[in-house]
Structures are given as structure tokens and as C-alpha cells.
Simulated assay, not measured.
Amino acid sequence: MMNGHYNRHRRLRVSGNMRAMVRETHLHPEDFIYPIFVLEGQNKKYPVASMPGVYQVSLDYLNEEIQEAVDLGIKSVIVFGVPAEKDEVGSQAYCDTGIVQRALSQLKEAFPDTVLIADTCLCQYTDHGHCGIVKEGKVLNDPTLQLLAATAVSQAKAGADIIAPSNMMDGFVAAIRSALDEAGFEDVPVMSYAVKYSSAYYGPFRDAAHSSPQFGDRKTYQMDPANRLEALREAESDTAEGADFLIIKPALAYLDIIRDVKNQHNLPLVAYNVSGEYSMIKAAAENGWIDERAIVLEMLTGMKRAGADLIITYFAKDAARWLKDNE
């Protein structure tokens, strides 16, 4: 075949600098949202057995954990609470002296420029482990909205810059937006877990947050992993109700959903690189089966290429460190 009768795509791959010139997708530390689990008490830093490198920390360890993230160029953190007490209505979620509220207040004072995101849900705080009020074995939608709204307002008062409701109740964005506005928090955005699947990838998180349901499952409110069009309907509803960000959770097995939602909505899109995705890579790396650094950066790049503007990931610190090493 004569030269010129076919395309020579390899011309743009001949050297590292050439490949860098034409690289289409770039990761930056500010793309990452770092998750942190905060415990009641003092002098506590407990490793999560199923998530190597992830810890539950008490408030006296919290600042040093976040300082490390800030020093690496990470601009935002999402705070999950592990309360000492639980009850049937999750009252510690919306208590003004709850663990998340105290963590937010402490972090806002120590790191005023860091974007503080509050996970807004009830499952860690209820004794039954479900994301709402339960009656006769059924999770009630509308009564739960009142508690979620109260939680959001309490978190905003404590210093949350963004409210991130993760419960998947119908109408939760509208209820929270209305409550925030009425309380004078019109400028606090809502980062909605708009598309949250009932996924097997959440297992390790439930160890970290102590949030496993005590009966049944969450399939009546989290989405069927087989469904694609339903994701578009969920995202459309949350956008109409006033969401400022949309989260897709999980990420790795749902890259098509990330792209679909990105194609239809102009809001900032967040991929949640969940605990199971994290732990699988950690386990394989510890066995020497994969190159952890290369795999993680490739995976996160894939999520961003699929359409994610931001990524919640337990790899945030490691990934930011590796990106700095590559500079």
C-alpha cells in the first residue's frame, strides 16, 4: 500500500511530549472530593478493615487529616458521621450538636477556603439502618422529607458549603431546597445523589459508616442497576427541583450513565468512585497483581472522560500525590 493511502495516527504518539500535546482529558487535584468519616469521642483513629488506608477519626484527628488533603491541592471534602447513638428517626442527623455538625464547624474555622460538603442522609443515624422513617417494614417517603430538610438546615448552620442528600426519596431536592431558602441559606447549593443505584459495590462503605440495613434492602428507593432510562428521569426531576450538582453512584460500572446524563444536563456532574471500587483495587494491589498507581489514574481518567467534572474518591490523596509526582 502506498504511503498516504491510509491515516498515520501513530504520528501523534511518537514521544511523551507529543502525546501530552494532544491529550484530551486531564486530571487535577481540584477534581477530587475527599471523603472523611468522623467518630464521636477523642483519640480515635480506627482503620476500616475492608478499606485499606481509610480511617474513622475523632474530631481531634480531623484537622490533620484535612490539612494533608489541602496541602495536596484538594479543594473539597465530604463529611460522613458515625454517631455514638442511633434511634428510629435518626435524630443525631439533624441535631445541632451532632457529630457532622461539630465536624463542619471545626473545619470551617480551621479551613475557611476548603469547600465543605455534608452528606445528608439518615441511614447512619437510624437503628434500623434505612434512609428514612420506617412503619410496618416500609420506608415512608413524605414524612422522611421533613427530617432530611431539618438535617440539611442544621448542616448549613454548622458551616456546610454544599448539601449532598443521598437518600433517594422522591422529592428530596425540592424539600431541601425549600427548607434551605426559608432558613436564609439561598446561596448553599444542593449536590444531589440524583442517580444512585442499589449496588453491591457499597459493601465496604457500610463497614466504614456503620450503615447496613437491619432488615431487607434498599431496592425500593435505590435504582435497579439494569436501568438506564430511569437514570435520565431521576436526573431530570432533580434538575427541575433545583439541584446544583448531579451525582452518579457508583461510577466504574456506570460510565455509560455518566455520559448519558452529561449529554442531557449542563449541571456540574460528580462521579462517586465508591468503596467497593476502591477495595477491589487495593486488594489486587496488595497481592501484587496490578500496578495500583497506573490503574487508579487510568480509572479516574476514564470517569472524567465519560463526563464527570468532579470525582468523590477514597483515592483522592494518593491520586493527587501521584499527579504532583508526574509534574
Rank of each mutant, 00 (worst) to 15 (best):
Ala158Ser: 14
Cys131Ala: 03
Ala200Glu: 14
Ser166Trp: 11
Tyr193Met: 06
Leu267Glu: 03
Asn266Ala: 13
His210Val: 09
Val270Trp: 05
Lys138Trp: 02
Tyr201Phe: 15
Ala183Lys: 03
Phe215Asp: 00
Ile133Met: 11
Arg228Leu: 13
Ala175Trp: 09
Asn141Gly: 06
Thr151Ala: 15
Asp181Pro: 00
Gly137Ser: 05
Asn227Cys: 12
Ala152Ile: 07
Asn263Cys: 06
Ser154Phe: 02
Gly171Thr: 05
Ile248Met: 07
Asp170Gln: 11
Ala150Ile: 02
Ala235Pro: 10
Gly171Pro: 10
Gln155Leu: 15
Ser198Asp: 15
Cys131Leu: 01
Leu232Met: 15
Ala235Arg: 09
Lys138Phe: 01
Asp187Cys: 01
Arg233Leu: 09
Asp207Lys: 11
Ile176Arg: 04
Thr239Asp: 03
Val190Tyr: 12
Asp181Gly: 07
Phe215Thr: 02
Asp142Cys: 00
Leu252Ile: 09
Asp256Trp: 11
Arg259Tyr: 05
Ala271Gln: 11
Glu230His: 06
Gln214Gly: 08
Gly159His: 12
Asp187Ile: 04
Ala156Tyr: 13
Gly132Glu: 01
Tyr202Lys: 08
Phe185Asn: 02
Leu232Tyr: 10
Gly137Glu: 04
Ala194Met: 08
Tyr201Cys: 02
Asp207Val: 14
Pro213Asp: 13
Asp224Gly: 01
Pro189Gln: 06
His128Ile: 05
Leu267Cys: 03
Val188Met: 08
Phe205Trp: 07
Ser192Asn: 02
Gln146Pro: 00
Ala152Leu: 07
Leu267Ile: 04
Lys262Pro: 04
Asn266Pro: 00
Lys138Met: 06
His265Lys: 10
Gly184Ser: 09
Tyr221Asn: 00
Gln264Ser: 14
Ile162Leu: 09
Ala209Met: 02
Gln214Phe: 04
Asp170Ala: 11
Met169Phe: 01
Met169Ser: 05
Leu269Asn: 12
Gln146Asn: 13
Met191Ser: 08
Asn263Arg: 14
Phe245Leu: 12
Lys219Glu: 03
Met169Ile: 01
Phe245Met: 05
Asn266Met: 05
Leu267Gly: 03
Gly184Arg: 10
Leu229His: 13
Val195Met: 03
Ala156Val: 13
Gln222Gly: 00
